[in-house]
Amino acid sequence: MKAFTTLKGIVAPMDRANVDTDMIIPKQFLKSIKRTGFGKNLFDELRYLDEGQPDQDCANRPLNENFVLNQSRYQGSNILLARQNFGCGSSREHAPWALDDYGFRCVIAPSYADIFFNNCFKNGILPVILSESDVDLLFKETFATEGYQLEVRLAEQKVVTPDGKEFGFEVDAFRKHCLLNGLDDIGLTLEDADAIKAYEVSRRQEAPWLFDAIQAS
């Protein structure tokens, strides 16, 4: 996994509550068996005026000029500013894959759906939670200033505005550790292989039926 330490970049404002994962990456693109290549279809139904198809060249598709990512001032953005309950809906990890493939490494919102929030950390994306009022203020500043940039410092757990305002945020110690160091958490879990085996031995005594094999019949 890519490490996340400090990120500075242009902020794109997604000014809408309850953005669901069907909106982030519509289902027809979930047919891919790869982890990459989803960026061109990020927010597909909002971004383009026609219905997108997998493996289609998006260069000549009609754009929704009003959509935030199609506005010239937000080109090259790598921080997505969003509203409450961002990422609700399905568990598709294609949603963070699409954000990452497009170039977003950080989302800032007042709240997230649980599964999406978790999936971000597995992909080197930092989902920052700030209060509604702080997020409101960042929306205002982003709209007011073309090329508005934020700096996100994970080690210090701070978001810093261009004029030096600082917003602290919380993050789980384990997730922070994995992100800062770009750690693969399967490898970390396997360090506890003995504990897993010991659990299995004692659990099998108590509830042997849980270890019956799923067998072909």
């Binding site: 982890r35 568990s91 598709r92 990890e93 963070p96 599964i115 978790n118 999936n119 597995k122 992909n123 958490d185 399967i186 879990t189 396997l190 292989a193 897993i196």
Partner: peptide
């Protein structure tokens, strides 16, 4: 769960 966790459960 997401796909990374599907892999995590398969492996651990």
């Amino acid at each position: 769960i997401g796909t990374s966790e599907v892999e995590h459960v398969l492996a651990t």
